[in-house]
Amino acid sequence: MFFHIVLERNMQLHPRHFGRHLRDNLVAKLVKDVEGTCSGRHGFVVAITGIENVGKGLIRDGTGFVTFPVKYQCVVFRPFKGEILEAVVTMVNKMGFFAEAGPVQIFVSNHLIPDDMEFQSGDMPNYTTSDGSVKIQKDSEVRLKIIGTRVDATEIFCIGTIKDDFLGVINDPVTS
């Protein structure tokens, strides 16, 4: 899910940036440092939408660098266990398939794909029901439920399932 939240960060600024454009430099550096990063707590920072306030700077002993506490509003994407969302299939293999929902990767293991769907190898590997009516392949859109998340320093990775009511393919790239 996407959220609009306020975060705070201490920004260190080199003395050469002091002057009329101090604030602009500070904001530019913030955008460069923060956008595109990911933390386990807040998820992916997609875009900074505004600066709430810039606190009083503190000169560091010895270096001349100044630290400013900056409060900023941003759009973040944070997946939650139990959340249901839509995703695009990016890769299919016999272990299951990978899907992407915005910045996050989700793996759906073949144990969590309905039992009546069989893996078919070939140019376009896919999972298909025995009657061929439903097919999951690259670029399919699926609705899935996140059942687990793994967080490391720079990425969040999810495990999902489509083995539940109202989950599964929502659009087939072949038929639509």
Binding site: V45, V46, G102
Partner: peptide, 10 residues
């Protein structure tokens, strides 16, 4: 960033 681009597409 790539995160921005992917989110926008999504």
């Amino acid at each position: 960033s790539q995160v921005f681009e992917k989110s926008l597409q999504y």
